[in-house]
């Protein structure tokens, strides 16, 4: 029995539980449509205060605690230049069961809300080829490493002919099976 207890003690101290995430992003999405077609998304990311302060240390060049237009522009340029590695990997789109990569990111605006102490990204995702609105679609913003935790909003702006569920998708897991990421399941008539 003693041996069993010691063996279990070893196992208990050696197993790994996850310390992540380190960065929190609160997201808001709006579906962009033209007639019966989805043309893209408007995405809004509000970063947590800790990351925002790190961001501002680099961005706020005159150290006035604000993000001036020129500072904002410089950061927008930097972020867009690296969008392929800093934004795109988190976005996953599945229209009618088909994964979609054909899109570009545009109109990035970066602001700093002094009251909430949060940096906010707002940008458009424009599909190269519009997709039929009718059908079942899955949209997710996920970091598979779970270094960044994306909190999805229930205020998903969609056309009247659509409805959505924000669910922890049990079919998919990240982070060694510990997390089922939140996914928008969108169905439109």
């Amino acid at each position: 029995m003693k041996k069993l207890i010691y063996t279990l003690a070893f196992l208990a101290t050696s197993f790994k539980v996850m310390a992540h995430p380190h960065i929190w992003v609160y997201t808001d999405l709006a579906l962009k449509t033209e007639g019966q077609y989805i043309t893209g998304l408007n995405i809004n990311w509000s970063f947590d205060e800790m990351y925002s302060s790190a961001f501002m240390m680099d961005a706020d060049l005159n150290k006035d605690g604000k993000l001036d237009p020129s500072e904002s522009e410089a950061m927008q340029k930097q972020v867009m230049e690296k969008a392929v590695s800093s934004i795109t990997p988190f976005i996953m789109l599945k229209f009618e069961g088909k994964d979609t990569f054909g899109y570009k990111l545009d109109n990035l605006k970066i602001k700093y809300d002094e009251e909430s102490e949060q940096v906010v990204y707002n940008f458009d995702l424009k599909l190269h080829a519009p997709r039929k609105l009718e059908g079942f679609h899955k949209l997710a913003i996920v970091d598979k490493e779970f270094y960044v935790a994306f909190e999805q909003s229930y205020d998903f702006k969609i056309p009247k002919s659509c409805q959505f569920d924000l669910i922890e998708d049990q079919e998919i897991t990240i982070y060694d099976g510990l997390v089922n990421p939140e996914v928008y399941q969108l169905s439109c008539k």
Binding site: V84, P89, M92, K94, D99, T100, F101, K138, I172
Partner: peptide, 8 residues
């Protein structure tokens, strides 16, 4: 992270 959009 992959350097392009990824399949879910």
């Amino acid at each position: 992270a992959p350097n392009k959009g990824a399949e879910l």
